[in-house]
Design a protein around this nucleic acid. Structure first.
Length: 259
DNA sequence: AACCACCTCAACCGCTCATTG
DNA sequence: CCAATGAGCGGTTGAGGTGGT
């Protein structure tokens, strides 16, 4: 509604974040919790717009983020969920708590899309003379999905798909226990309009450790020491123990996106 | 070693949705 | 109920990295 972009302000910095800015942002969020992004630049003195701060936090500094090296299971999950939900990356990301919507989106655009295109080309050639009645696992057919199926059928199908996605994720978790580092904060969704990521007092130390770890990971030369903090280790152990139940909850009662 | 083409991903932009007064 | 504002989402961009010639 005709609101000027917040980033049009003079003196607002753009481009890559510096380590100092990261630290400032993380320590502010440790004290105040995420949210009320509008006030973050003012209160921290960061020359960034609120959007930029939020994005930096959710996509990069937020605790529990796993970067790169998508597993086969994660890949399958993404493909499956994309077919199911379309390009609703935030919704998809809510099923992969360690991944950000941006990360998933990037991975889809750079890897999976090409991969699937190639697969479809191959299968098209093979099944060229067959009719394409069943929309089996076809990512581009989600719209025909909806238009050609009765609602009840579609919902039943969705339930089945969610169940399969759940299975796939559970498999992935059991295979990747060693590397997985789930967010400690209650909200697994990076986005989702119902975001309420205020850490409890018990969580805040773990949250801090994870954030520091994130920064340290980015800046190996800069913060090598804090990376080895024992807090981080115990946090990841705890996290591993609870991750399955967290995922189960999320999949059993999918986020508001539920179709 | 230098150049070029391609790839990746962090960050930005513009839009919509939600909330508030 | 409506307008203003804040927050979140998805598409897109471009700087930096990497591999090939």
């Amino acid at each position: 509604m005709g609101r000027p972009p917040c980033c049009d302000k003079i003196g607002v910095k753009k481009g890559p974040w510096t380590p100092e800015e990261d630290i400032t942002l993380v320590s502010y969020i440790q004290q105040n919790g995420p949210g009320n992004w509008r006030s973050v630049p003012t209160n921290t003195g960061l020359l960034r717009c609120s959007k930029s701060c939020r994005l930096r936090w959710t996509n990069y500094l937020r605790p529990g983020i796993k970067r790169g090296n998508f597993t086969e299971q994660e890949e399958q999950m993404i493909i499956h969920l994309q077919a199911l939900l379309g390009n609703r990356w935030a919704a998809i990301a809510s099923y992969l708590p360690q991944r950000t919507d941006n990360d998933i989106k990037n991975y889809w655009n750079t890897h999976l899309k090409k991969k699937l295109d190639k697969l479809h080309e191959d299968s098209d050639q093979e099944t060229h003379h067959h009719h394409h009645g069943t929309s089996k696992g076809c990512q581009s057919s989600s719209s025909s999905y909806e238009t050609t199926m009765y609602k009840g059928q579609w919902e039943r199908r969705l339930q089945t798909d969610i169940h399969m996605a759940k299975q796939a994720l559970c498999d992935a978790l059991s295979l990747d226990n060693k590397t997985i580092n789930l967010p400690v904060s209650s909200s697994a969704t990076t986005s989702g309009k119902s975001e309420s990521v205020v850490p409890s007092s018990n969580q805040s130390t773990a949250t801090y450790a994870s954030s520091a770890e994130n920064i340290a990971r980015l800046l190996p030369d800069w913060m090598k020491c804090s990376k080895k903090s024992p807090q981080t280790n115990s946090e990841s152990i705890e996290t591993k123990q609870t991750q399955s139940s967290v995922i189960n909850q999320q999949l059993t009662s999918p986020p508001s996106e539920g179709v």
